[in-house]
Nucleic acid binder design. Structure first.
Length: 348
DNA sequence: AGTATATCTTTTCTAAGCGG
DNA sequence: CCGCTTAGAAAAGATATACT
């Protein structure tokens, strides 16, 4: 979106708001130009929004520029009379998500595992399609928080001063989550990485002396929240220079892996939330806090799937990841690219 | 559950009005 | 001219609501 177009959309927004403010005092708008498939979307948006919102649509024809050579353009707008801007945004996102241009040539699971080079990714961004008005600007904080209503609620936290040193695609992913996360994938039909569906075989290393273990022990005195998990996570973000984010949403869909159904035994999207991310020795570390790590059996699969999904989201090779889980006594870690997923998924 | 925002309520501040 | 009173505005605080 060019700055000029952005201004035109803002002006259109003001115009609509002025005309409708009496009838719709809490009007929130999504505006876009008539490019690509957009105009067809107006009724689709309306249909998707109608169960939850009272909505209006508008079309504004721009007066053509003085040089008559170029054709006139139209701005389309869909609006809701509600303050639930996140709910509004989610519906728009869901509709647009289905219209994404399919990336051709999804890699097979085996190539994904073998890849030693990073891949280019083209993440979905709402701002590529249109603008929301009014736009609510969040106050900047060192640890930025966003709660996802992913049943239950997950509070994603990002420690912004630690971001600059990270690989670019990871940085971009961490930022786009705040607004562009496809929350509809986390509803009903998907399957969670935390649910056990198959076994992973991988060389697993065990230790009882590790900075993570010390930090986990020290975090016990931290009781800001009622949840132990949340206290530990925030403690790591505040006291460990390597920990930069917690409860990071990740996902992958069937169209992203050629033999997805064969590998996972389903077409449903895979979703999850990574407990804790660290960056050390040029490796992205995916961690899960498991009280009683010693007796843990499902954690390897779970953390492996987290790393796989983050690798797909960021395009970073699995070789740049390290995985593990820990508590106040024990720590286990492994290299995700060495993992072997047993294809049978019939054991739940 | 925990947090941000809107709305209502109370307090405080400011300044104008007025009588001594 | 001064100080007391008070209306109205602004700030602060408390509560309700919406949000994720």
């Amino acid at each position: 979106m060019t700055p000029k177009r952005w201004v035109l959309l803002q002006q259109a927004s003001e115009k609509i708001r002025a005309a409708r403010c009496a009838q719709f005092p809490r009007l929130n708008l999504f505006l876009f130009f008539d490019e690509q498939f957009h105009p067809r979307l107006l009724p689709e948006f309306e249909h998707a929004l109608s169960p939850e919102f009272s909505c209006i649509t508008a079309e504004i024809e721009l007066s053509p520029p003085s040089t008559q050579s170029s054709p006139s353009e139209t701005i389309y707008a869909i609006g809701v009379n509600s303050r639930r801007i996140e709910g509004f945004r989610d519906v728009i996102k869901r509709v647009l998500w289905q219209h994404q241009q399919r990336k051709s040539g999804a890699r097979t699971y085996a190539t994904l595992m073998r890849a030693s080079h990073d891949q280019k990714v083209q993440p979905f961004r709402l701002s590529d399609y249109g603008v929301f008005t009014p736009y609510r600007v969040k106050t900047p904080r060192t640890i930025r928080v966003h709660s996802f209503g992913h049943e239950p609620f997950y509070r994603y936290r990002l420690c912004t001063p630690k971001i600059p040193g990270l690989p670019k695609s990871l940085r971009e992913y961490l930022w786009l989550l705040f607004e562009d996360c496809p929350n509809h994938l986390y509803k009903a039909d998907g399957f969670r990485a935390s649910q056990q569906r198959f076994m992973v075989k991988v060389p697993l290393y065990h230790t009882q002396t590790h900075v993570m273990i010390d930090l986990a022990g020290a975090s016990r005195d931290y009781t800001r929240f009622t949840s132990r998990h949340e206290n530990l996570q925030l403690y790591f973000l505040e006291h460990d220079p390597c920990s930069f984010a917690c409860e990071i949403p990740v996902w992958t869909e069937a169209r992203e892996i050629q033999d997805y159904a064969e590998v996972f035994g389903t077409d449903a999207p895979l979703t999850g939330h990574i407990d804790l991310l660290r960056y050390t020795e040029h490796r992205v570390e995916v961690w899960d806090y498991k009280p009683n790590a010693l007796n843990e059996v499902t954690a390897v699969t779970q953390v492996f799937l987290y790393a796989l999904m983050l690798s797909i989201r960021t395009g970073l090779s699995l070789r740049r990841f390290r995985c593990g889980y820990f508590d106040e006594r024990d720590l286990y870690w492994f290299n995700p690219h060495e993992a072997q997923l047993s294809p049978s998924h019939h054991h739940i």
